[in-house]
Design a protein around this nucleic acid. Sequence first.
DNA 1: CGGCAGTACTG
DNA 2: CAGTAC
DNA 3: GCCG
Length: 743
Amino acid sequence: MALEERIASHRTSGSLSSKTMKRPTDKASKEKTDDVVKSGATTKTSKQRGESSRKAAASIQPKPEPKIEPTTYAQYVKQARKEQSQSAATTQNLFAGMIIYLLIADDDMEDVRCKVDCLIVHGAKVLLYYRPEACTHIITAEPSLDPSLLVRMRIDSVDEIPKHIKIFNWNFVVSVLNNLIAAESQIYAKKAAQGRNYNVADEILPENRPPGYFIPPQELWPEYFACPEREGSPKLGIDVHQRNSQTADMIDSKEATASPPHAAAASPSLSPDAPNPGSASDANGVPTPGSSSDTPEKPASTNIDPSDPLAEFYEQAKKDRVKENAPAAPNAQLLNDIANWWDLKQDVGKEGKEEKEGAWWDRAEETEDEDGVEDSPVKKGKKKRGKRGFTCDIKPAPGARGPCPNQDVVDTLTELMGLHKVKPGDDHHWRAFSYQKSLKAIRDYPHRIRSVKEAKKIPGVGEKTADKIMEIIHTGNLRRLHHEHTEDVDVLRLFQGIYGVGQATAVNWYAWGCRTLEDIKEGKHGVKLTTCQKIGLKYYDDLQLRMPREEVQALFDVIVPYARRIDPKLELRAMGSFRRGKKDCGDIDIMITRPTDDGETHAGALRELLLKLHRADILTEDLAVPDDLDDPECVYHGLCHLPKTPGAKQRRIDFLAVPWKSRGAALIYYTGDDIFNRAMRYKAGSMGYSLNQKGLYAGVVRDVHDRRIKTNRGNIIASETEEEIFKILGVPWQEPCERVRNH
DNA sequence: CGGCAGTACTG
DNA sequence: CAGTAC
DNA sequence: GCCG
């Protein structure tokens, strides 16, 4: 939720829901309006940026200095536009046409928010208030519809709810999502069967299916009815005729029997026994966002019911939805203009200096461009759509970054951060954390910072840091730095360089009088070392080093044959920074899994592999061995080196055993980078999912009697491939080497 | 004012 | 449980 | 230390 995270994620993953854009968006439009309108560059489209803007720059040069720097806002804009085209495109009409009142307790606002977001993201309209004339469905997340809930709807009994409004429980939503997944896995299966170049997108995307396609068949509805007795045994004309579980014929059955012709075919209306009560615009089944939704909800927007505890929230939700459904909102246009204006200004200021070394905003576009929403055709050549064979190794050229105008600030604050990082205690910890985040933004800030006010505009920079920045800029140094650079820090740093030694241990040793590694080695002052620490100390120098990726490859190549001999079907992959294509790696991470189609698993293989690698003098030390080595999901930490190689350094190595079915989620998780993962998790959360190394989950299920207890984490809806998770989250596919957010 | 990820291994 | 690492 |  932190702003920095949003930046980090939006800049690269293109994956935040539009709601997350809200704040910067509003801010930018508010503060920049005047300038933009006058700038004269407001009508350029993004396609025209780059070359043409550079030329145009000269004539527009005499324009007023901006009051703020729209640096990051320019990026927000690009992201926002992209956002709209993407997340909307993937999951928009799962619930298209449904006007839902969500009946839910509000003791867990986060949960409420997730659920509402989930509905909205998937195309439903969510009512601020229950109004029978507008509502098509009620979905409740509560175990029972007791009076305390019904008062929210201003009714005393469910009998007052018109019969045409079906009342489903939340599992209905989960089921719809599961149907989506089921359909997707079929497609992936087909894809696998057919080999490659199978156009998944055409089949997979919900918008290519009729609305309502993923709605469960009617005979399953009773499972999801919140009060089955109310629904009775209606004249639904339930089609009892045989229907296999194939999603493909769902729509057919429904059309044939459930839906009356008028509301029918395309309409997902689940109320076949009543005319669509809401608006005529819904009856045609075309999900016309914005238009049809305005009618039923407009009254509420001007008058928030103070007695409804959710009113304010719904209001917000509505705003979010409106934003999402209205790509051409004036706001977006305005921001678009700001983006253009900003690019222009860059060109003027830098005088073509950026021509040779890709300037930061260009680089930003490289990563953003992903699916080529609409951008400079010039750059297009570099990326082949959907084709692999990406040369990660030569991609980011880490040294080629443009000079940082605030390098002194970055250096000084980095040093300060280092001091905090080494000291014990929460204060220091979070201070360091904070600096780390703001430093990322400062590094990318393309201007020499001139004032406190300007500094504070950089996300992650607050009062304190802004003052420090100005002190550095004005005086060239930071008094606080000397103040914090107490004499202990160097020793603390030294000690913490030992694997297995953190702040607490280091401080203790220092307090006991230790000052050197020799002291530690000799156990002076009562120092006792853990097993890990002994090893860490023994290879202190080696473990400070990073290794060239060639060495990771070499180690991997040496290891794989051992695994193959244990079980030819074992699959190993080098993960982490290696998979991201980094030139040097801090350690080597190897994922181990195995297809289960023959009933076997990789259980036990890791134990055997470790044994063999030890015997082969590849593994040299164990640092952390899982409780249960036969657990299909466990992590091993150790040291290794290239055998029979004089001078070979000791390297950190991790083995990650992963169940076959969660290999996709694990790939994402263990590939990182860290910031990228957070962005993915964040977006998942904002869409009502949750993501971890095991999979993507939907619809957290809570204990029926005590809602605070989570019966489980929801249903796994994806985990086998990275692609499906990206797809569901509406994140454009990115090669591992593109998932780099931390420079 | 509380959150800032969440989990597994060690001793 | 605290400490550490990922 | 920043953010909401």
